[in-house]
Design a protein around this nucleic acid. Structure first.
Lengths: 345, 345
DNA sequence: GGATAACCTTGACACGTTTCAGCCCGACGG
DNA sequence: CCGTCGGGCTGAAACGTGTCAAGGTTATCC
């Protein structure tokens, strides 16, 4: 009940009959202290159940053992997988992650950045809400490391880890074009998200490459990248006369694709026979959908892992750290939802 | 590039022409300092861009402004929703959450608890991996608040927030029995998870209540509560001769149910006409499945919110805090996957 | 045996806060 | 005019740790 006396490095020292400096050395540079002393100290630590106070350590050293991760949406499996990757890398290094969810809300993001600054985190891994990231610049000026996540860095002094979204768009579109589709819908939004725009432009590029007219691809913008918005987009698509209706749909994210799939099924439209469907992210639920979803796979976990690693590298050796902008290549995973060849025309 | 000089309370003090004590007062008890002085200090803070160092504050005060959240699986939407609830409550109180993922691994859980102890968190919200939680007792002895999440507390000195899993099992089973099903499969596991066992026993209870034989419900245990395990269980079920095959399946969680649904569909078994399906948790993907899933809804977000609130209450007024064991009631949400009445026999 | 080196250990200071006893000063009552 | 009071501010101590110059001991070599 009562918080029992907090045991500090000093108690350990007197118990082991050494000075506090020595205890500290045992903790931080075990090699420079004689084996016998070291054992005595370790015994004392065990006996007293001493646990170092990280706040004090951080105060002394200037920077702590925590880092911040700010994502757009915890409920999106894409980000939880990224978080898992971050956790892998940091856990191995004995670091703690403060997990923040900006929810796409700029104000919330700002509040969290304040909080992280007060915590004097080593660094911040962030998928910013908007591109005008003056707050991040300020952070950097104060010595907080910043790594952009799933976003290309525009500044040379900030690392970033992203996936080539244009290429992803190309892969998806090429696949559909090769299967014979000539009326295709693009579902995605909100348009201010860079990822959405890039995927669209990649798709358009693949179209041109195939010598097809740009009207082949018709854009359906959504207010948010969610399941509900996907259902909505699907009914808009089905609202068109059959002759003008798309025979394939490419969604900027799997949540949207699941929504589209759900609405199509509800309206008795068969996937892939009547309409083929390709998503993006390849979240686990994509493979688990009633009609397994073709999707553009991103190395989600590796994304987080790499970002964390980049930050750790810079933290460990700031002098000759080269700021990198890592770009991964996405990969198309074809499943049932787009497995149906169609004779063009 | 270069970390620019860190600005401390002392710099603010000299800039404003007051002592450090006064600055501290402006920050923590603004009412006791004269308005003119206060404004001068605030101006200095703004001008210098001062951000308080939480480590120092925590060192002085003994305990910090962070708390730990340890869940079984970040990839399960159930837990991300719980996390959202926690975040709501703590964000309002200006607290930071350190998010940890034990992954059902006892060793990992243990490592994270060490880390949280070093951070001197105010408290820990945790869904423990196993019931023998001696580690948690030790934490409490050291003055770290503990709240059990989605788990009933067995100790009177620890708060807990859970949902009545037996009742949930009853609701699901009653629904299926009333629809006329007389051969039902229960899919769940691993069996060591208390939640799984409780849901099963609730189901059995509903059976007895209806005067049916216990053989009506057949148990299919899974090695993990995942989509893949669900697919597997479904093929086992379909392996039985049609006359002995269940006409309804109740899954201990929605991930399993989605797996079952996927495999049934693949094998051309119609849901709900041939086999009805009920899941548990009512994650968002349940409603979004191609055949919308009936499921037992838990107040996920409220679970997290309440747990966090309980902890904050105890933190703010440890003297007369009553340890509570909150139990929420689940609710059955009927959707298409179980909407098909069957004549018994 | 003395000088030198190698190896451990010590003890004090610093990190940025909060807290608290005490000081100053003006107001007020007698 | 003196005494008292209290609001407003000051200054130093303390929190638990890391660091580092300096000291101490022992072994090594000539």
């Amino acid at each position: 009940m009562v918080p029992g006396p907090a045991v500090s490095i000093r108690d350990v020292a007197s118990q082991a009959g050494v000075s506090v400096g020595t205890v500290s050395n045992v903790l931080n540079r075990p090699d420079i202290v004689a084996a016998s002393t070291r054992n005595r100290v370790l015994a004392a630590i065990n006996e007293l159940g001493f646990v170092p106070n990280d706040a004090a350590r951080q105060l002394r050293r200037g920077r702590g053992r925590t880092l911040g991760l700010v994502v757009l949406d915890v409920a999106n499996p894409f980000f939880t997988d990224v978080a898992k990757g971050v956790e892998d890398a940091t856990g191995a290094a004995g670091m703690a992650v403060i997990f923040c969810n900006s929810d796409g809300d700029s104000a919330k993001e700002s509040r969290y950045l304040d909080l992280l600054e007060e915590q004097r985190v080593q660094g911040v891994l962030i998928t910013p809400v908007d591109d005008a990231n003056e707050r991040l610049v300020r952070l950097r000026e104060r010595g907080v490391l910043v790594v952009l996540l799933d976003r290309r860095s525009t500044r040379p002094d900030v690392c970033s880890v992203a996936v080539d979204d244009r290429l992803g768009g190309e892969l998806a579109m090429r696949h559909l074009v090769e299967a014979g589709h000539r009326r295709i819908a693009f579902v995605g939004g909100p348009w201010r998200l860079e990822q959405v725009r890039d995927r669209y432009h990649g798709a358009v590029h693949a179209l041109r490459e195939a010598g097809l007219a740009e009207e082949t691809l018709r854009r359906f913008e959504t207010p948010s990248p969610t399941v509900a918005a996907g259902r909505d987009a699907a009914s808009r698509i089905l609202g068109l006369p059959r002759s003008a209706r798309a025979t394939a749909v490419f969604c900027a994210n799997d949540l949207l694709a699941l929504g589209v799939l759900q609405e199509l099924t509800r309206q008795q439209v068969r996937v892939p026979e009547d309409i083929a469907l390709v998503g993006y992210d390849d979240i686990d639920f994509a493979a688990a959908a009633a009609v397994p979803l073709s999707s553009v796979r991103q190395p989600r976990q590796r994304l987080g892992q790499t970002a964390a690693q980049l930050m750790l590298d810079e933290a460990n050796d700031p002098e000759n750290h080269q700021h990198k902008q890592v770009i991964f290549e996405p990969e198309l995973v074809v499943r049932e939802s787009s497995q149906y060849a169609r004779t063009p025309g």
